[in-house]
């Protein structure tokens, strides 16, 4: 596939993670680690692949369906970087009367589906892709699904259906971070070789390092348009990627940040503006993040 050329939004993974931390601390939320595993995936999609021209609900946009709704803070971070959310949205996360919830919610412009009850978003995304086919709009649907979520029967129903309907405008991205709520995927319900399963289901499938943005772009670029096959990337990721105390530690599915862990986390994610040419400078100094 070729990326739409007109969209180039700079999204720096470190800044996105810092935005997640800012929200998570403000709202005293869980689900930090599962947001961190999809940061590069979302950054690559928003930067180079999703046509949104430039508003979140623009007609004809490509769809980004976050089926693993627990990672929504990563998407909020992208939406903040794109200017769709403001500083108040991040700093008042979970405050009374605010609109950003802890799971993907279709009432928020920019979020396409209500998910978090797992196994819903992909089917809705498949419906969006099917509608695009029937209406010949040329839209693609990118659906990010967790490897734990792949336990859901409805996911496999969606996979079968999309392949049967020849939805080559569907791009499934599995966030294979190896963990789900109660433990590792190997411990809870071993899914085996997901790429092999997806190939067997008729998907043009690539394994890819889900934190290597160049590799993600390259993998998306090798998928062929209009060959009748849905696409799939099995993005191998690390839950809690980027923080020494969070990586591979499933406690951080549930743990909340305190002042100490926030300071440590921010220390491990230093701002390097030169690494993000054109990136939006952090709007708030660190002490505000800690407030």
């Amino acid at each position: 596939m070729t990326p739409p050329a007109e969209i180039t939004a700079p999204l720096d993974a470190t800044l996105l993670r810092r935005s997640v931390l800012r929200m998570a601390h403000a709202g005293s939320t869980v689900h930090i680690a599962c947001a961190f595993s999809i940061v590069e995936i979302l950054a690559v999609l928003y930067r180079g692949w999703l046509r949104h021209n430039p508003l979140p609900q623009a007609p004809g946009r490509d769809y980004l369906v976050l089926s693993k709704g627990h990672g929504v803070m990563a998407q909020y971070a992208c939406m903040y970087a794109l200017g769709w959310l403001g500083d108040e949205d991040l700093d008042r996360y979970f405050a009374d009367g605010t609109r950003l919830k802890g799971l993907s919610d279709a009432h928020v412009p920019g979020l396409e589906v209500t998910s978090g009850s797992l196994g819903h978003g992909l089917s809705v995304g498949v419906g969006l892709a099917l509608a695009a086919k029937r209406q010949d709009t040329g839209q693609r649907c990118y659906a990010v699904v967790g490897d734990g979520e792949m336990n859901e029967g409805s996911i496999w129903e969606a996979l079968m259906f999309a392949a049967h309907q020849r939805l080559d405008n569907l791009v499934l991205i599995v966030d294979a971070n190896g963990f789900q709520a109660m433990g590792s995927t190997a411990e809870v319900l071993d899914m085996g070789d997901l790429a092999a399963k997806l190939r067997a289901f008729g998907y043009d499938t690539r394994d890819v390092d889900g934190h290597d943005e160049l590799a993600l772009d390259a993998a998306l670029g090798t998928l062929r348009d209009q060959d009748g096959r849905p696409k799939a990337l099995v993005a191998h990721t690390v839950k809690g990627k980027g923080l020494s105390f969070m990586e591979h530690n499933n406690q951080w599915h549930y743990t909340r940040l305190d002042a100490t862990t926030l300071a440590q986390a921010l220390g491990e994610l230093p701002i390097q503006l030169e690494s993000a040419p054109g990136a939006r400078a952090p709007a708030e100094p660190e002490e505000d993040i800690q407030s």
Binding site: G121, L122, S123, L130, A131, A158
Partner: peptide, 17 residues
């Protein structure tokens, strides 16, 4: 595959069908 079918229907409806 009823769960998927209803989700698909939601997507179709969101797109105007």
């Amino acid at each position: 595959a009823e769960q998927n079918m209803v989700g698909v229907a939601a997507g179709l409806a969101k797109a105007g069908l």
